[in-house]
Simulated scan of single mutants.
Amino acid sequence: MVGDVPVGGPEPVVMAGPCSVEDEEQMVSTAKAVKAAGARVLRGGAFKPRTSPYSFRGMGLDGLKLLNTAKQETGLPIITEVMTPGDVDTVAQYSDVLQVGARNMQNYNLLDAVGETRMPVMVKRGLAASYEEWLLAAEYVLAGGNNNVMLCERGIRSFESMTRFTMDVAAIPVIKRLSHLPIIGDPSHSTGHWYLVTPVALSVIAAGAHGLLIEVHPNPDLAKCDGPQSLTFENFSNLMNQVRAVKGALAGEPVGA
């Protein structure tokens, strides 16, 4: 459970919001827009691991406070990344799901620390991690006594350069066969291009994912982080309509129902 939202049931849970928290207007407007379209959880990064040390690395505590403001405005629970064991207690005060990012999947001290919280934790797959390595990373959280764990397939590094990463759609049914843990798909990070997010998201839902993690921004061209892969409010609303259509088709509902 994430607040009152069940993750892992028959209905896919969409978690949406900007890559990084930038200001109050951005967060509140995005939270209202994604909620209106059907998202159940608000995402936003306050602490950002970046390849370049000169890129925008998040607002830190101020960003967490803005996430809380958006939560108070909309009632949406929050998922945000925690990067170090020393930040776990602080991030836990402002969030409902602690996200362990791909670059920290094998940060075992961090996994131990989030395992002690008993809070919902999302463990993203590492850039070149096998299924076994990924599941064993989640096992660190479980071994700490925290059973509230979900996994996130966010694309793996391959030889292809046209997309940011390569979405391993097969990971969805494989993980469902190997594990009882909910599995979420992140088509934003895997593709790196907004126009690929919707078709890849639909493939992930068709493969049986329990939810999606989608980047949404009021003005992607001005985003401080990951603008090219962020959906506008309108595009996100269209995505949600198509997700519902795919789920309906899988359930055998008549077209247009």
Results as ranks from 00 to 15, higher is better:
V2G: 04
G17R: 03
C19K: 10
E24F: 06
Q26D: 03
M27E: 03
V28T: 11
K35D: 00
R43S: 05
G44A: 11
A46I: 12
A46D: 05
F47K: 04
S52N: 15
L61C: 02
D62P: 06
K71G: 06
G75I: 08
T84A: 13
P85T: 12
V100D: 00
G101E: 06
M105D: 01
A113T: 05
E116F: 15
R118D: 15
M119Y: 07
K124V: 04
R125I: 01
A128Q: 15
A129F: 00
E133Q: 10
E133P: 04
L135Q: 07
L136A: 07
E139I: 02
A143T: 09
G144C: 10
G145T: 12
N147W: 13
C152A: 12
C152S: 04
R157H: 08
M162T: 13
T166H: 08
I172F: 09
P173E: 09
I183S: 06
D186N: 07
G192F: 11
A201W: 02
A201P: 07
V204N: 10
V204D: 15
A207K: 01
G208R: 08
A209F: 04
H210V: 04
H210N: 10
L213A: 14
E215M: 01
K224C: 10
L231T: 05
N238G: 14
N241G: 12
V243C: 07
R244V: 08
G248I: 03
A249W: 10
E253P: 03
E253R: 10
P254D: 08
A257K: 13
